[in-house]
């Protein structure tokens, strides 16, 4: 659980997640190739390689689309949280699938001894001024570089080395990669292949990503309003029993950062809403085995002082809490991480 550098720890959940991922990819690519072979038997090796290019390319596009949908889906419905647990492996596998797509593309050129013409496509600067005719492979290559950077820095070592805010910022460039991939397809295969499944895949995928993000963003907006102040700078939360047992109410402080106010039976405590691991929304988690548990990857902290249980060393900032006139209130000035601050009611 520590953010320090250590060997990847496998557990049954991760193995099951990865097995389902790999099986899903194999099923998709296998089905695609069988169906394509049946509907349009390849006349030569070149046509067979072309089908592989499309199979792996469309698979990578669908995988990136699903990855981008996981975040808002998990926000909208907790049942999707397990998908988020090992999302990084999903991303690494997507990079590998995209890499195979590029490998077959190179083979397609190599079979015709046409690799120099591929070089020409990238270096013909006048084409970069066009819209239709833009070197779409350059867009795909740029997306592949982003996917590589994300895959290469996906380990917790890089998360700890770069710090969660920088790491998160880097990994948010997946949105840029997605835009590049959509345009790679739109200016590439869409221009010369009239198969309606291609625009259908693009439009449905893009609509799903944007629609889910808009919906999740709309639901989140209310959470960004600063909580009502009691007049002494303390923020009103709710009556104690209105805070779900083993759960939290999330409020926003005057600086815009969120505070998670948990209740565990008769104990109430307030912690920073940012998990020390990936800055996940700790307030959307639950109290499990006496510890506040992050919904993203299961990092745990004691409610009393925000410290991870031994032997782990992560600490969260805590906040002073009190009950005034039957309402739980929080002092929005954070205490040093690990400071005991919970109260009994």
């Amino acid at each position: 659980m520590s953010a320090g550098f250590r060997a990847v720890q496998w557990n049954r959940t991760k193995l099951v997640y990865d097995a389902i991922l790999v099986a899903g990819v194999m099923l998709y690519i296998g089905s695609y190739l069988i169906l394509a072979h049946w509907l349009d038997p390849p006349k030569d090796l070149l046509a067979a390689v072309d089908q592989r290019i499309r199979a792996f390319g469309s698979c990578a596009f669908i995988m990136v689309t699903i990855i981008l949908c996981i975040g808002p889906l998990a926000r909208l419905d907790r049942r999707f949280l397990p998908l988020l647990y090992n999302r990084r492996h999903f991303g690494v596998l997507t990079f590998l699938v995209a890499l195979v797509h590029v490998g077959f593309m190179l083979e397609w050129y190599a079979l015709q001894n046409a690799l120099p013409s591929l070089y020409d496509e990238f270096t013909k600067l006048s084409d970069y001024a066009k819209f239709i005719g833009f070197p779409f492979k350059a867009l795909g290559l740029a997306a592949l570089v982003i996917l590589f950077l994300m895959a290469a820095t996906s380990h917790d070592f890089w998360l700890a080395f770069l710090t969660p805010p920088v790491w998160k910022g880097l990994h948010m460039t997946l949105y840029v990669a997605y835009g590049l991939i959509v345009m790679h397809v739109a200016l590439g295969v869409l221009q010369y292949d009239r198969n309606p499944l291609i625009p259908g895949m693009l439009i449905v995928g893009f609509a799903a990503v944007t629609g889910l993000h808009l919906l999740a963003g709309w639901r989140e907006r209310a959470g960004d309003r600063c909580a009502v102040s009691s007049g002494e700078g303390w923020l009103k939360v709710a009556p104690p029993l209105a805070i779900p047992d083993k759960g939290a109410r999330i409020i926003t402080g005057p600086d815009g950062e969120r505070i998670a106010v948990f209740r565990d039976g008769s104990e109430i405590g307030a912690l920073s809403n940012l998990c020390a691991h990936q800055n996940g929304p700790i307030g959307e988690g639950r109290i499990i085995d006496g510890c506040v548990t992050c919904p993203w990857h299961g990092y745990q902290y004691r409610l009393v002082d925000g410290c991870a249980p031994p032997p782990f060393t992560e600490k969260l900032a805590t906040y002073r809490v009190r009950v005034s006139h039957g309402v739980v209130e929080v002092d929005p000035r954070p205490l040093p991480p690990g400071t005991p601050a919970s109260i009994r009611i």
């Binding site: 046509a47 072309d50 239709i132 959509v182 625009p199």
Partner: peptide, 20 residues
């Protein structure tokens, strides 16, 4: 970009087999 790519794409060439 996607909308423009759809609108501006050239008409299909009946002599060219698709995708090859």
């Amino acid at each position: 970009g996607l909308g423009m790519a759809l609108v501006l794409r050239p008409p299909p060439d009946p002599a060219t087999p698709q995708g090859t």
